[in-house]
């Protein structure tokens, strides 16, 4: 991480290899953030590309004194995702939740064993399916809090709402998520039975 400012300087100087190194170092995390918001791999790839285009265009505004590069990158990504999420909210409400169920990630880690990969994939699918059933407001709050580990104040800044509202949305989102998981429990049991 100590090399990040140097990489940013080299990227700003027009060195493509430095920009590529930054991309390779952060694309996975940004991609996962996008996937949590969208629940679709193809849309997550498009959003990841949009985020990095925005980062590439605004790289000169990054100031080392304001914080580490990953923090700045995450902030840019979250802002872009929240904007995108709100823009497409109506489409999401009218679209079928399960239409993209078959596109859930099929590239498990090569390190884990087959059973661990299956279990990991099942948990991932269950969580994504449950998140997809939340309302957009509650969903983005839960993602930022429980998947991105942001503080209430940070979420408040990203979403542009008071901290009290953030807390309320997170609480209601967690309750809704628990109910959805409860309803999905029989399906989960069927899926894991041999």
């Amino acid at each position: 991480m100590d090399e990040q400012p140097e990489l940013v300087k080299r990227a700003l100087a027009g060195e493509n290899s430095a920009w590529e190194e930054l991309l390779r170092g952060h694309s996975r995390k940004i991609y996962n953030l996008c996937y949590r918001f969208t629940g679709r791999t193809s849309e997550a790839e498009d959003l990841t590309q949009e985020v990095f285009i925005k980062v590439f265009q605004t790289l000169r505004t990054y100031d080392v004194a304001q914080g580490a590069f990953p923090t700045w990158l995450n902030r840019v990504a979250r802002n872009h995702l929240v904007d995108h999420y709100r823009r497409t909210r109506k489409d999401r409400l009218t679209s079928s939740i399960d239409e993209d169920a078959g596109q859930i990630e099929e590239r498990p880690s090569q390190i884990e064993g087959p059973m661990a990969r299956v279990e990991s994939r099942e948990r991932r699918e269950l969580l994504q399916a449950a998140l997809d059933r939340l309302s957009p407001d509650m969903r983005e709050a839960v993602i930022l809090r429980d998947l991105q580990d942001l503080e209430y104040e940070e979420i408040s800044q990203v979403l542009g709402v008071p901290v009290g509202t953030v807390k309320s949305r997170i609480n209601r989102g967690r309750l809704e998520l628990a109910r959805v998981l409860k309803r999905m429990e029989p399906m989960r049991g069927q899926g894991t039975e041999p």
Binding site: R28, P108, S109, R124, V142, D146, L147, D149
Partner: peptide, 9 residues
Amino acid sequence: CRSAEDLEP
């Protein structure tokens, strides 16, 4: 949520 593993892009 907190134990959710990352996907491979």
